[in-house]
Design a protein around this nucleic acid. Structure first.
Length: 574
RNA sequence: GACUCAGUAGCUCAGCUGGUAGAGCACGUCCCUUUUAAGGAUGGGGUCCAGGGUUCGAAUCCCUGCUGGGUCACCA
């Protein structure tokens, strides 16, 4: 990389890197650095057991330095937190040679560098538990300056807060923003908590294909890719459902999968093109059983994460304590609109939509109309966890018809904070009904519903061998994490949310410039002057260009032989 | 996709009804042996997102584009 493309601070750090090497210090050593203690453990344990901390060895990143002549304080950050370290020249350099302190620590190390230290723990006059360093090892040099976030009395100064930079360079976000690292730890603890719960019930964790020739199990637009050897299109899965049910046919009585689904749809604060879901299927159960199971699971997650069932989400305090309210979709609509739509036909539903001022179009069937009414008038009011049950049959092609009403299905969704969190069925296991439902979906797609499902004949064949009555449930892990950590955007709970790629400015290669007579060593200078393409150079004023180049040469002390005005002219006019 | 706000130093941000850029932190040099958002002195650092336009003159006004945020729409 040419130095003209670096900022002053980056150049200085690279020079420091060279200086370290000149002193015989490898800035990127290979050896293991044995760590005996972590920052937070020292701070927690020192008062009570001071004797345990007479020799400590820890490693981490320098997050701040306060140098006072021959003594210095620095902040060291490791996986558990920060601790102050105290370095005194004559302690780390007991001999005559004071280079390690005067040159290496004071001049060549920077905020962001990773070091290992050995020393003993003590308490400063200010009362802060610190490590008095007796030896220091450079473990990795940082070549880019880190945003310096400071904090006093709980108030954060100069926070690294621009969402675009935070998401694009999540590593920097994680280094600098402790609460971000904590959110992702919580995400993993949520998943672990669920996994424990399933395993305790002897359900089997499995993996099913992500690349599918028929994307099934949900209504959504898929991503399409292509397999070269098979020379056929493949789809990224939009749901795990159909494969997991095949495993129930195969004789497992409980299977679950944490996995990524992919949907080629809009992106916003609650949608990312790839997202994580957990789906679980348990044989010989129905959706009523699954409601109990789901609330038990969610209550456990909340308890494991917070020690209690209450979580603050925005302005709302949500309580995940069992049991949750249960209400059928039709009752909910009756409650919120006053309309009893049970048994209504399409015309009746459209009339209800008209009076409630809900928009709809001709392609919508009964199910979709009911869903619109529910979505518009009811959904947002369910802040505390609530099971909405018994959805219309048209909306649920993989769900068993309701035991008491063939227009409905044995389905529930768990609503929390006004949004869908989990979705579950008594699974449809009648292959003849299943095929008919798929065909209904095909009709919908012919009507223009581009989210209607494909027909998966192999899945129907599997059902023809017989699937035990089964209940299945799916839950969005990203949304659950948002709720449990009080985040309002999905980007805050995904390490690397989808972003438009960063654009690099196009520029002509060196050879295009040398072709018109520009010496190779001057090409970076020309870039720096703002001429990224030969064509742009051709349109420039040669006198101005000559001045700019000589000026840059001088300013950046490049030590190049300045070109003659005629030479520059010849590049431009050739 | 619509509307709206924003993009200025490594980071966080000022910059008025147009006069060619500032602060704090960070960085360089110097002083200081228990400081703590350390302090003091001093110095360097910018394609003001990009491209057009208006103007004697644009970070500033106008248009177009790029990227992101917010709201809405779409999204079982």
């Amino acid at each position: 990389m040419n130095q003209l493309e670096l900022s002053e601070q980056e150049i200085i750090r690279r020079e420091s890197l060279n200086e370290l090497e000149k002193l015989g210090i490898n800035p990127f050593p290979a050896e293991e650095f044995p760590v005996t203690h972590y920052s937070e453990d020292i701070k927690k344990g020192f008062e009570e057991h001071a004797d345990d901390f007479k020799e400590v060895s820890l490693a981490g990143r320098i997050m701040g330095r306060r140098i006072m002549g021959s003594a210095s304080f620095a902040e060291l950050k490791d996986k558990k937190g920060r601790i102050q370290i105290y370095l005194r020249r004559d302690d780390i350099c007991p001999e005559d040679d004071k280079t390690l302190y005067n040159t290496v620590f004071k001049k060549l190390l920077d905020i962001g560098d990773i070091i290992g230290i050995k020393g003993f723990v003590f308490k400063t006059q200010m009362g802060e538990i610190s490590v008095h360093v007796t030896s220091m090892t450079v473990l990795a040099k940082s070549l880019r300056p880190l945003p310096v976030v400071k904090e006093k009395d709980g108030k954060v100064y100069d926070a690294f807060s621009d969402p675009e930079q935070r998401y694009r360079q999540r590593y920097v976000d994680l280094i600098v923003n402790d609460q971000v690292r904590d959110t992702f730890r919580k995400r993993t603890r949520i998943i672990n908590s669920m996994r424990e719960f399933f395993n305790a019930n002897d359900y089997l964790e499995v993996e099913t294909p992500i690349l599918q020739s028929i994307p099934g199990g949900a209504a959504a637009r898929p991503f399409i890719t292509h397999h070269n050897t098979l020379d056929m299109p493949l789809y990224l899965r939009i749901a795990n459902e159909l494969y997991l049910k095949r495993l129930i046919v195969g004789g497992y009585e409980g299977v679950y999968e944490f996995g990524k689904d992919f949907r080629n749809e809009g992106m916003d604060r609650t949608h990312n093109p790839e997202f994580t879901v957990m789906e679980i299927y348990v044989a010989y159960k129905d959706y009523k059983w699954m409601m109990d199971f789901t609330e038990e699971m969610i209550e456990k997650v909340a308890l494991d994460l917070h020690g209690n069932t209450k979580v603050q989400v925005g302005d709302n305090m949500i309580d995940f304590k069992r049991p949750y309210k249960r209400i059928s979709m039709l009752d909910s609509i009756k409650e919120h609109t006053g309309y009893d739509i049970a048994g209504m036909d399409i015309a009746g539903l459209r009339k209800v939509c008209d009076t409630l001022e809900i928009e709809y179009d001709e392609s919508m069937g009964k199910g979709k109309l009911i869903d619109e009414i529910f979505g518009e008038k009811c959904e947002a009011s369910y802040i505390q966890p609530t099971f909405i049950t018994d959805y219309p049959v048209e909306m649920s092609p993989l769900c068993k018809k309701h035991r008491d009403n063939p227009e409905l299905t044995e389905r529930f969704e768990l609503m929390v904070n006004g949004k869908e969190l989990a979705n579950a069925y008594s699974e449809l296991n009648d292959p003849i009904d299943q095929l008919a439902r798929f065909q209904d979906q095909l009709n919908l797609s012919e009507k223009g519903d581009d989210e209607a499902m494909f027909i998966d004949m192999d899945f129907v064949r599997a059902l023809e061998y017989g699937m035990p009555p089964t209940s299945g449930m799916g839950i969005g892990i990203d949304r659950l994490t948002m709720l449990m950590t009080g985040q309002s955007t999905i980007q805050e709970v995904l390490f690397f949310p989808q972003m438009r790629p960063e654009k690099k400015k196009e520029r002509d290669g060196e050879e295009k410039f040398t072709a018109i007579g520009v010496p190779a060593e001057w090409v970076p200078v020309i870039y720096k002057a703002g001429y990224l393409k030969v064509d742009e150079l051709k349109e420039s004023n040669p006198n101005k260009l000559h001045q700019e180049l000589c000026g840059l040469n001088k300013k950046h002390k490049l030590g190049l032989q300045n070109p003659k005005p005629d030479e520059v002219k010849s590049w431009v006019e050739n």
